[in-house]
Nucleic acid binder design. Structure first.
Lengths: 191, 191
DNA sequence: ATTTTAAAAAAACACATGTTATATAATATA
DNA sequence: TATATTATATAACATGTGTTTTTTTAAAAT
C-alpha cells in the first residue's frame, strides 16, 4: 500500500459543486478544484478518467440534491410539492439551476417523462381534482410545470420585482395553480 | 487609402450570430468567425477593440431581432402579442434564446422594468380587462410573463411533449391567459 | 511610375486548460 | 530494516484562445 488517501472522490465532487454554485458549471477547472482542496490535480485523475467523467458525477450529485429537496417538501399534494421543491432549488442553488436547465435539457426530459404518469396518478387521488379526465389532468399538470419552470428561472435570474421574496413566489405559484384548476372546473361545467 | 474593405462590421456580427445560433454564444471565437468569413482575425480587430465589444454588439443585434419579432406580432392585444413574440423567438433562435436568458438576466431586467408601465397602460385600454385595479393588472401581467418565460424555455430546450407544435404552444399560452383573467374576474366578484 | 496608406494575412506572444510523464514520499509487507 | 506500492506533487506537453506585432498587398495619391 501507498500513503493514506487525503482527497476522496466525494471531496472532489463537493469542491466542484462549490465552484459551480458560485461561478457556474463552466468555470470548473481541474486546477481550480485542486487549489481549493489544497492539492495538485493528481488526486482528481486518480478518481476520474477525465473532465467528462467528473462532470457526469457532478450532474448526478446535483440531481440527487434536487431530489432530496423534493422529498423534504411533503404536504401530501404532490404536484404542488413539486413546484415548491423546484422553486426552493432554484433559489438556493441559483447559478447551478440555470446551468442545469440550459445544458441539461436532455436529462430533464427523460426525468420528466418518467415522473409524468406517477404525478397523474397522485393527482387522481387528490379530492380537489376529483372528476377530471386524464387529459384534463395532463393539461393542468403541464400548465403548472410550465409556470413552475418560469418562476424558478425568474427567481434564479433575479428577474422578479425587487421586493419579491420566497413567500411571494410560493404564493403566486399557488395562486396560479388555483386559477388553472378553477378554470378547468368551469370548462368542465360546460361539457 | 489602402485596399478595398472586404469584411464589414455587419458581416462580422452576422457571422458571430450564425455561430451563436448553432453552437451557443460561448462557442464564438475570433478565429472561428475569421475562418467562417474566409479571413484572418485582422478585420475583426479593425472593427472591434476586443472580444467584449464584439459581444456587446452581438447582444444588441439579438435584442433588435427580438424586438422586430415583437413588431411583427400585432393583433392589438399587447400582452398576448408579447407572449407570442417571445415564443416565436425561442423557437426560431432556440440556442441563443437560452443563452440570453441565462447570461443576460441583467439586461432583460432593465428592459422589463421599462416595458412594464407601457404594458399596464395598454392593458387598461383592453375591453377584456375593464374594471381591474392597477394592482390586479400587475398580477395578471406578472403571471403571464412567468408562464411565457416557462413555455419559451421549454420550447427552446425541447422539454415539451414530443407531439407539441408551435400552434399547440400558442394555444396553451392563450388558454392559460384565459385562466388567469377568468379567475381574476371571479376574485373581483368577491370583493 | 512611384510612393503612401490602410486593409488584410501571417506569425508570434501570453496565458489558461486538459492531460500525461516523471519524481517524491508515505505506508504496508517481506 | 529494506522493498514494493501507490497517493500525491511537480513539471512538461499539446491545444485553444485573445491579442499584438510584423509582413504583405492592393488601392489611392503624388
Amino acid at each position: 500500500m501507498g500513503p493514506k488517501v487525503k482527497f476522496t472522490r466525494e471531496q472532489i465532487i463537493d469542491t466542484a459543486f462549490e465552484i459551480a454554485q458560485i461561478e457556474g458549471i463552466d468555470s470548473i477547472t481541474m486546477r481550480k478544484i485542486a487549489e481549493k482542496m489544497g492539492s495538485s490535480v493528481a488526486p482528481i485523475y486518480v478518481n476520474f478518467k477525465n473532465v467528462d467523467e467528473l462532470n457526469k458525477a457532478l450532474i448526478e450529485r446535483i440531481i440527487s440534491i434536487s431530489r432530496q429537496l423534493l422529498m423534504e417538501e411533503n404536504t401530501g399534494n404532490p404536484f404542488r410539492d413539486m413546484g415548491n421543491a423546484s422553486l426552493r432549488f432554484a433559489i438556493e442553488y441559483s447559478v447551478i439551476f440555470r446551468d442545469l436547465v440550459i445544458k441539461n435539457g436532455k436529462y430533464m426530459q427523460g426525468y420528466d417523462e418518467k415522473m409524468m404518469p406517477v404525478l397523474i396518478e397522485e393527482m387522481q387521488k387528490d379530492p380537489e381534482l376529483k372528476g377530471f379526465t386524464t387529459d384534463e389532468l395532463k393539461t393542468i399538470l403541464l400548465k403548472m410545470k410550465i409556470f413552475q419552470l418560469g418562476i424558478s428561472i425568474m427567481a434564479a435570474s433575479s428577474l422578479l420585482p425587487k421586493e419579491y421574496n420566497k413567500q411571494d413566489m410560493m404564493d403566486i405559484l399557488s395562486s396560479t395553480a388555483d386559477d388553472v384548476i378553477m378554470s378547468a372546473k368551469l370548462r368542465r361545467g360546460l361539457r
